[in-house]
Design a protein around this nucleic acid. Structure first.
Lengths: 184, 184
DNA sequence: CGTGAACTTCACAAATTTCTGAAGACAGCG
DNA sequence: CGCTGTCTTCAGAAATTTGTGAAGTTCACG
């Protein structure tokens, strides 16, 4: 991938297109979002889907990621993504459960805000610790079932060892990331 | 063509795990597999599915993993897993494409053998290099779209940096694994 | 307390995925 | 050459997943 650092062209044009269809009329909730940004949302969401996240949660999450404050209301999400309130509700439940967003509510308001849970969402997203544990556990049972002195047993045992190794490595890796990111 | 007059027997559910019975006749291909091992296959396959692999490829792969030689014929797979030859064909195509198995054919035989590609299948399975590259690339575009001096831009940029970091780390990690595994 | 805004739940329709039977293609063998 | 065993392709049935409309619930506020 190209390494572009030096001559960053004066690119402010992107941020200035923010008002295509702002209704002058009664309290329009919608904040028109740049077509480029919408395209990114869909592209990013598609990759989340590919990684296993359901479609609506992916789109909602992507929209939150590029939102100025990292937070949007239910209505804003429904409007921007052209989906029903029910779809927003489902997506938001999924994301909250996954620990990726937080539900906020201004006291004395019926309106909820959904906010990115922290600025390190990808740590949550890539955290597969519990999965690795289960893989290892399943595999160890398998070793027992096929007999540990068989070829199959040795295959499974090595796989289990790999997942055990992975668990240790990933922990260390995240520590290195936290250090590294302060240098960015 | 609707076949309503034909009294279609109730669809055999996949859950009904029929006991593998050795046919008395000569040349029975099937090798009865222990119920414990079958249970492991299904459990392991379920975890592969959870990780994103389609059901049939997962089951086929699991069956190969616990097979004595790490290889089975199409017929053996169909029989053991109670699936149609078509399903085996599809699963095997998927697995070969993914680089997890190898197709073998004894010269002068019409029968194919599917063999685990190597004893380090999990290296292949966990190799997400290309994915990471695409994530990073998508994210960099996003930074550009939202403007790199916005909050959203900084969020995306940090995420991109994380995926770049991951790419480097995973490479090193696999090297450490190869060293470590020789000590097992 | 009643009203209505805002979110949630539910049942169903639509879209998608998955597996099967059946026909097809390919290759060894008589 | 044609037969037969083995794998592949294909159309369609079944199951599953998804998203919507509409009814239900909750709660701030009058």
């Amino acid at each position: 991938m190209p390494q572009e650092s030096q001559q960053q062209a004066p690119r402010q044009t992107r941020q200035t297109q923010q008002r295509e269809e702002e209704r002058a009329g009664a309290g329009a909730v919608e904040v028109a979002v740049d077509a480029d940004v919408m395209a990114f949302i869909e592209r990013f969401a598609a990759q989340l889907v590919e990684a296993g996240m359901p479609r609506m949660p992916s789109r909602v999450f992507a929209a939150l990621l590029v939102s100025p404050d990292g937070a949007l209301s239910s209505a804003a999400l429904a409007d921007q993504l052209q989906i029903s309130p029910a779809a927003v509700s489902g997506a938001v439940r999924y994301l909250a459960q996954a620990g990726l967003i937080l539900r906020e509510r201004d006291p004395g308001s019926r309106r909820e805000l959904y906010r990115l849970h922290n600025d390190q969402w990808f740590e949550t997203f890539t955290n597969r610790e519990h999965m690795l544990v289960r893989w290892e556990s399943t595999l160890r049972t398998g070793v027992y079932s096929v007999g540990e002195d068989s070829d199959a047993g040795r295959r499974l045992a090595e796989t289990a060892a790999f997942f055990e190794f992975l668990q240790r490595e990933l922990t260390g890796m995240m520590e290195r990331w936290r250090v590294y990111r302060t240098t960015l």
